[in-house]
């Protein structure tokens, strides 16, 4: 007896992001038709790709019911180290890209060490690494601005088949991460772990290793995201990436990745990132008071988290053990 009948509420809760997305585009489109032009749409996707890449990484961590607050600092310090090495060894920007990702992986491994080995709660562990990583960067630069070579900026602004590099990166990461999560044993085990950590342990899964890989994935994506974003400007300020962790988490959750673990996909995260960017740009287009814009963003994020909470409550209620059959 399959439960095929789904209530309208559940249907809405499952697709809340797309409903919101449609509503937002429609609203701004009606207000300002130029908003719907391909140019502004392409601009949205490009601007969304930076937070999007990091949000895809964050999805891995959120799926395990964890959280990573250090992504903003990783976005700052990993490209910085890559830049310093590029400067010292005279390396091309493509090499720098791999260095940045590798540094991200190492920082993620450090987070994983705190969480998996020392068993510190993810929130606290990554809160301290947020300061730790940024502090390291500040110490390296004495809080001065770091200027990259000109070719770095040229690399960042380059495009292939008229599509800017950041969008290519965004798409590449999206496809890779999707394959990892839905077409490898590791990916499916990430979902299992997020559904029930105790159950995963009982089923004989290597939970520590699965969690560790998720944090490394998250930081590597954050590093890439930071590297691509900096390549648009060519210089790195001390405050770069500060507070970005909230944009990244918000994008993933807004897209439908659950904070309670086990629910969501990288596509959700990508859509969430684009949705946030759409709102940001839409507010500019419609000429909303600059200082009122964060209120709107806050409201939308609040809605997303609210929907996530309701969704989780409903699933828990459905799974509650009964002592007699419900007919």
């Amino acid at each position: 007896m399959m439960l095929k009948k789904k209530s309208l509420t559940d249907l809405f809760l499952q697709n809340a992001t797309y409903v919101m997305f449609g509503a937002v585009v429609l609203y701004f489109g009606v207000q300002q038709t130029s908003f719907l032009m391909p140019d502004s749409m392409a601009n949205i996707v490009k601007q969304a790709s930076f937070i999007g890449i990091a949000a895809i990484g964050m999805t891995f961590v959120l799926l395990t019911a964890g959280i990573d607050l250090s992504v903003g600092s990783v976005m700052y310090v990993a490209p910085l180290i890559a830049g310093l090495l590029m400067q010292a060894l005279d390396l091309p920007p493509t090499m720098g890209l791999f260095i940045a990702i590798a540094v991200g992986g190492v920082l993620g491994a450090l987070n994983a060490f705190f969480i998996v080995v020392l068993r510190i709660v993810p929130f606290i562990a990554t809160l301290s690494s947020l300061f730790l990583f940024r502090g390291f960067g500040t110490w390296l630069t004495s809080s001065k601005q770091f200027d990259f070579a000109d070719e770095f900026r040229a690399f960042g602004l380059s495009s292939l088949f008229h599509i800017p590099l950041p969008i290519w990166m965004f798409a590449l990461v999206l496809i890779l991460a999707h394959y990892m999560l839905s077409h490898t044993g590791f990916g499916r085990q990430v979902y299992a772990l997020g559904n029930s950590q105790e159950g995963a342990r009982k089923a004989g899964l290597k939970t520590a290793s699965i969690q560790a890989r998720c944090y490394m994935m998250c930081s590597a994506c954050a590093a890439l995201s930071g590297y691509m974003l900096i390549s648009q400007i060519g210089r790195l300020d001390a405050g770069f990436g500060e507070g970005s962790e909230f944009d990244v988490i918000a994008a993933a959750v807004l897209g439908g990745v659950s904070l309670f673990g086990g629910v969501g996909s990288v596509f959700n995260a990508a859509v969430g990132a684009i949705l946030i960017q759409t709102v940001k740009l839409g507010l500019v287009f419609t000429g909303v008071n600059l200082y009122a814009q964060p209120i709107m963003q806050g409201f939308i994020i609040f809605l997303a988290v609210l929907v996530d909470g309701i969704r989780d409550k409903r699933t828990t209620a459905l799974l509650k053990r009964t002592i007699r059959p419900i007919q």
């Binding site: 499916r188 085990q189 979902y191 299992a192 997020g194 559904n195 029930s196 159950g199 995963a200 009982k202 089923a203 899964l205 086990g262 629910v263 699933t315 799974l319």
Partner: peptide
């Protein structure tokens, strides 16, 4: 002891 967010097959082979 099943994972509700995975398919039947995935639960068997997890």
């Amino acid at each position: 002891n099943l994972f509700t967010n995975l398919s039947i097959a995935e639960n068997l082979f997890v």
